[in-house]
Design a protein around this nucleic acid. Structure first.
Lengths: 109, 109
DNA sequence: TCATTAAATGTATTATAAGGAATATAAACG
DNA sequence: CGTTTATATTCCTTATAATACATTTAATGA
């Protein structure tokens, strides 16, 4: 199914390796707004545009009859960036050149 | 220069031959909101999405590095429909299936 | 001129997004 | 365990978007 706007924005933020705090700082909105928007709350267009700009995302209005074609172009591009497994916090925000862990093991303790 | 979101939306509404009242009716928002948005006022995302949906417009979030490519695709499509001269009110909102425009017949109706 | 239609604006009220700052929750890791 | 980091949430206040009309402005054409 097609991802919602806020899902895409969140994915973009994570792809850039930014925390909500950092995204908020760059866009000039509150971290709270980043959080609630990403969870689906309503925000003003100005707030959304500030956030989008901070994430280098454009909001392109496309007539429905053209949307399919553009989506296919985008999908091809997305295919180049495989991000299937959700990375851990440190994987997101740090670049560990020591070792990479794939697979989650809830071995707390 | 790149048109703003509200300019594009307005152009789309006119291209569909819809009045603000009709666009408002279809989207469930007020005519006033259509007007103020098209003039650049801030609106909530939900309001924008309702209006966009009524106009069969999708809002596609695109990473800036991909935007140029998509814009060129869109530009090619737009080139097919050159509507440079602003039509009159009747041209917009009526469909002259009859050729009564040429004949100056003072017909009562 | 007058009537009609579309669009812009006025006003009062209500709803809610945003600001500001703090705290709570949760995950990851030593 | 405790610490750290990111995210979600709480409280209160303020700003403003949305509603529900009504009215004005402007263009168009009979």
């Amino acid at each position: 199914m097609k991802p919602t706007l806020h899902e895409t924005i969140r994915a973009r933020r994570l792809a850039l390796g930014l925390s909500q705090v950092e995204a908020a700082r760059r866009s000039g909105i509150q971290q709270r707004q980043v959080s609630v928007f990403e969870r689906g709350a309503d925000v003003t267009l100005s707030t959304l545009l500030k956030l989008a700009q901070a994430l280098d995302v454009e909001l392109i209005p496309v007539p429905r009859e053209d949307a399919a074609k553009l989506e296919s172009v985008l999908k091809a591009k997305r295919g180049l960036a495989p991000s299937s497994s959700p990375p851990s916090l440190l994987e997101r925000y740090q670049v560990p050149d020591d070792e990479m862990r794939d697979g989650e093991e809830p071995t707390n303790g």
